[in-house]
């Protein structure tokens, strides 16, 4: 297990040794901060107009997902493509570590950074829970908003993120250039986001909508996660694609040894 931990540590800290991490963090905070501002404006608007589900306004918007689309590929593009490009893959694969440990180490390292990316958004929650209690009192522990949509939203964010990171890692194992890796994984990830943009044109009862709904991540968040619903179909989709892409990445590393 020690090689695995060494690799996770190196992959995680490597993010902070390059500007990519800081740029991603800044852009991500800017976007979620702006969405949070919109939610707050909606919640504090006088009169009967308001927001029914605050988390839906944060994560159910497909425009958020269009921005989000860029983030996992930026995190995964260097993982294997850089090592192949510079040749360091040779020293990594000749050290006593199994191929699945290499893949797991890189995936977990990227996953940890992804969690770090979301951590600052936790700061929004105390403000939201404080909304309807003018003097916040920790003893009474009253929530201004329903806590379960918050929990399900973070669950969804974690698992959907895993899926996008898995796709990015697999693509990164196929190419030598980081830029190409990022572009291809964005295009592949687009499949899971783009479908949401057809939604307004589709009859929600039609077969097409039901098929699109299966793979459309923004729709999962708009209809289920952000409203406190855990639909196992989405969880199974995310988990199976994550595992499948990780499996493919291990195979892709193995095939490297057979070819050249």
């Amino acid at each position: 297990m020690r090689p695995l931990f060494a690799l996770i540590k190196r992959e995680f800290t490597a993010y902070f040794l390059s500007p990519v991490a800081y740029v991603t963090l800044a852009v991500f905070l800017l976007v979620t901060g702006h969405l949070f501002y919109l939610v707050l404006t909606g919640l504090t608007k006088p009169g009967s107009s308001g927001i029914e589900y605050p988390m839906q306004a944060l994560l159910g918007d497909e425009k958020f997902w269009l921005v989000f689309l860029f983030i996992p590929p930026l995190l995964t593009m260097r993982l294997l493509a850089e090592e192949r490009g510079t040749g360091t893959l040779e020293s990594l694969l000749t050290s006593p570590i199994r191929d699945w440990q290499v893949v797991a180490g890189k995936f977990i390292g990227a996953g940890l950074f992804y969690v770090v990316l979301w951590l600052p958004t936790l700061a929004y929650l105390p403000i939201l829970t404080d909304m309807r209690t003018p003097e916040w009192n920790p003893q009474t522990w009253t929530f201004g908003i329903d806590p379960s949509p918050v929990l399900t939203s973070y669950l969804g964010v974690l698992l959907a993120g895993g899926m996008f990171l898995g796709i990015g890692l697999f693509v990164s194992s196929l190419v030598k250039s980081q830029l190409v890796a990022a572009m291809i994984s964005m295009v592949v990830s687009l499949v899971f986001v783009l479908a949401a943009f057809w939604r307004p044109d589709l009859d929600t009862g039609s077969l097409t909508y039901r098929l699109v709904y299966f793979i459309s991540v923004p729709e999962h968040f708009r209809r289920d996660f952000s409203r406190g619903i855990v639909d196992t179909r989405h969880l199974i989709l995310y988990a199976s694609i994550t595992l499948f892409t990780l499996f493919l990445t291990v195979r892709s590393l193995e095939s490297r040894r057979l070819r050249a």
Partner: peptide
């Protein structure tokens, strides 16, 4: 240190 960890050194 990273390489040592990869090679299983404590």
């Amino acid at each position: 240190k990273f390489r040592g960890g990869l090679k299983g050194l404590g």
